[in-house]
Structures are given as structure tokens and as C-alpha cells.
């Protein structure tokens, strides 16, 4: 456990100093802060539009950070030969991989917390919501964090056998598909015209692919008043899902990485 933590904390230290990431983070914060002025677009749904747009910026920025942060993680270690000094120590390859992943997750957490704080602050300044409402609005970023953890696992998995460029497009693609997976499934499932074969294929595909859309739970936050029963249970499920899926990807990564010549 100790080597994993050492690798993770070092990774965080490195991540929060990477200029590219800081620039993306800065742009994200900048975008967030211009959103309140765009909310004139809708007279009555100002709050809804403001929150949903902020969420979208938060999600997009986090995803970009997650991908850029993780795709270079292992290739960089190899290129700089730091991996040799690490692997020549009593560190198993899987420990290295897990350490890197945890570092990425921690760094992402930090950045998401930062952006969410800015978002909540802006929301507070411009809308003066009740504390309960504020708390409700602050809930979604936590689920985005889980989503980004899953995305980081996808990237780490790919980085065990692809180049960063290929990985970038693969991960973006998978994330893109994953974010529309549930809507897509829902469309097919609710389309009475779709054949049963089509429906079961849709069910399998959405079951196999990482369903990033699970973490998009903003609807009742944007549109208050909706009553959702057993929501806590759902939250537990999606936390579990993120952990299971990430673990699966990491294990698959370990299998590949263990045999890889670095």
C-alpha cells in the first residue's frame, strides 16, 4: 500500500503543476464565470439555464483534464525513464498502475473541487439560493467526479498499450458514446418500433460500455419539484458501478501492462 500511496501523491504533485492542465482549468473557471451573464437568454428559466450550462462547462472541462492528465501518465514515465528507477525498487507493476490511477483520481478530485467551488460561489452570488438549494446544486459535481474517475480508468487502460494520440481519440470517443449511452438506450427502449433483437443488442451494448450518462443526474436539480423515490439507492448503485468498472479496467490494464516491455 505504501508504494501505491507514494506514487499517487507524487502523481498529484506533478499533475497540479502541469501547465496544460492549469490552462484548461483556468479556461474552465473563466467560462464558468461568464455564464451568469449569459443567463438573460431565458427570462424565467434563468436559474435552470445557468445551472445546466455551468454543469456542462464543469463536465466538459473535467473530462478534458481527465483525458489529458491520464493519457500521458505512463508514456511520460517511460520516456523519462523514471519508471525504471521505480520498477527496480520493490514495486510491482500493478502497484505502479494503481498508484498512477489513484494519483490521477486525487488530482481530478482537487480540480473538480476547485471548479465546483467557483461554480457554487457564482451561483450563490447571482441567485442567492437557500442553503438547501445550494447543497442540492453542489451535489452533481460529486457525480461528475465519479464519472471522471471512470474516464481516467478508461484512459489508463488504453495507455497500457496505445500511444497518447491514439488514446486521446479513443477515450474521447468512448466518453462521447458513454455520455449518450443511456439516452440512446432509452430512446430505443421507448421506441415501440424497435425490434426485440435491436432492443437486446442495445441492452447488451449499454451494459458493456462504460455508461458515463449514469452520472448525469442534473435533471431534478435543474428542474426542481420532481420527486424521485429511492434516489439514495440509485446513488449507491452508481458509486458501486464506478468502482467496479474502474477496477475491471485497471485489472485489464494490469494484465496487459505486466507483459509489456517498457
Amino acid at each position: 500500500m505504501r508504494p501505491i500511496m507514494a506514487i499517487a501523491t507524487t502523481t498529484v504533485g506533478e499533475a497540479i503543476r502541469r501547465r496544460v492542465l492549469l490552462i484548461i482549468l483556468f479556461i474552465g473557471v473563466l467560462l464558468l464565470s461568464i455564464i451568469p451573464s449569459l443567463s438573460v437568454l431565458t427570462a424565467r428559466s434563468e436559474q435552470s439555464t445557468m445551472i445546466s450550462t455551468m454543469y456542462a462547462v464543469l463536465r466538459g472541462t473535467s473530462a478534458l483534464i481527465a483525458i489529458i492528465l491520464t493519457i500521458y501518465m505512463i508514456p511520460n514515465e517511460i520516456e523519462r525513464r523514471t519508471i525504471y528507477t521505480i520498477l527496480s525498487k520493490p514495486v510491482m507493476r500493478w502497484q505502479f498502475l494503481v498508484g498512477k490511477f489513484m494519483g490521477a483520481v486525487l488530482a481530478l478530485g482537487l480540480m473538480i473541487v476547485l471548479m465546483s467551488s467557483v461554480m457554487v460561489l457564482l451561483f450563490y452570488i447571482f441567485q442567492q439560493p437557500s442553503p438547501e438549494r445550494l447543497l442540492e446544486v453542489a451535489r452533481q459535481p460529486f457525480f461528475y467526479f465519479l464519472e471522471m474517475m471512470l474516464l481516467a480508468a478508461v484512459c489508463i487502460f488504453f495507455s497500457t498499450f496505445t500511444t497518447p494520440l491514439v488514446n486521446f481519440f479513443l477515450s474521447i470517443g468512448i466518453w462521447g458514446v458513454g455520455t449518450v449511452l443511456s439516452p440512446l438506450y432509452s430512446s430505443i427502449a421507448s421506441n415501440s418500433g424497435a425490434s426485440p433483437i435491436m432492443q437486446s443488442v442495445a441492452k447488451f451494448v449499454t451494459g458493456a460500455m462504460p455508461a458515463f450518462s449514469n452520472y448525469d443526474v442534473k435533471n431534478p436539480i435543474i428542474n426542481p419539484g420532481q420527486v424521485i423515490e429511492n434516489e439514495q439507492k440509485y446513488f449507491i448503485y452508481i458509486v458501486l458501478y464506478a468502482i467496479l468498472y474502474s477496477a475491471g479496467l485497471l485489472v485489464a490494464g494490469m494484465v496487459i501492462f505486466d507483459k509489456r516491455e517498457v
Binding site: Y185, S186, A189, S190, T206, A211, S213, I228, Y234, Y237
Partner: peptide
């Protein structure tokens, strides 16, 4: 997850 998400 799937159907719950779809519903809510």
C-alpha cells in the same frame, strides 16, 4: 441503473 435513470 438503466431503467431508473431513464425514469428519473
Amino acid at each position: 441503473i438503466q431503467d431508473f435513470w431513464k425514469k428519473n
